[in-house]
């Protein structure tokens, strides 16, 4: 019987793990790549072959929670029949479940990063460029917006997920139950606010009027 090839661990995961260890052990974020490499006794070029800078690593780190939550939800048979709101809410619960393994790290990380506009901007841009099946909005509304290169609903959903992660990091209630309440409450609000069915009707009427070229309301 042929020996199974041992799967090589992604070196980026090792760097991310090193970063987490650094923050947990020292109680602060590494100020430079050099400081992180010194702590992990790793060559600088090893880091540079995978990430351009610390911000890129940090983005990948948070993105991993999102990707993992998305994968889990995509493979959840029961969730297939859920509506978009329930899928979004479930995604958020899975997101904080992933993050729950890194509670101490996350608290330090969020504390430092929430005051960093450059990280937030970079992260949100990266996040919005990603495709998460769980966060994609289906239906006519979405298609209409996609065509004009704008999907405010998707942006709102990803930003919402980020706010949940932030809220979670500072939640000191028993079993982080306030985060659950936050998810329930904000999801409800978000889906009420982004209910663009009225807008869809306007687009639909506009499309109809333009394509039919009916001159009844033309005064030229």
């Amino acid at each position: 019987m042929a020996k199974k090839k041992k799967k090589q661990a992604d070196p980026r995961f090792e760097l991310v793990a090193l970063y987490k260890n650094f923050v947990t052990a020292k109680g602060e974020l590494p100020q430079s790549i050099k400081a992180l490499m010194k702590y992990g006794k790793i060559e600088l070029k090893e880091f540079k072959s995978h990430f351009k800078n610390l911000e890129e690593l940090e983005t990948a780190l948070v993105l991993w929670y999102f990707k993992k939550a998305d994968d889990l939800l995509q493979s959840d048979k029961e969730a297939e029949s859920w509506n978009q709101k329930d899928r979004h809410t479930a995604f958020l619960y899975l997101l904080i479940e992933q993050a729950s393994n890194d509670d101490i790290f996350l608290n330090e990380f969020v504390e430092a990063k929430r005051a960093s506009p450059s990280f937030m901007k970079h992260f949100i841009m990266t996040l919005n460029a990603q495709h998460f099946g769980s966060l994609s909005s289906s239906g006519l509304t979405s298609e209409v917006f996609e065509k004009i290169g704008l999907n405010p609903k998707k942006s709102a959903l990803t930003n919402h997920a980020m706010s949940v992660l932030w809220f979670y990091a500072f939640d000191k209630t028993t079993d982080k139950q306030d985060t659950d309440a936050f998810i329930e409450k904000t999801s409800d609000l978000l889906f009420r606010l982004t209910d663009t069915s009225t807008l869809t009707s306007i687009f639909d009427l506009g499309k109809f009027m333009v394509t039919r070229k009916n001159t009844a309301f033309s005064w030229n």
Partner: peptide, 12 residues
């Protein structure tokens, strides 16, 4: 409450 939260709480 959303079903995902019910499911999560029940599982816990």
């Amino acid at each position: 409450l959303s079903y995902p939260l019910i499911r999560k709480t029940f599982k816990k």
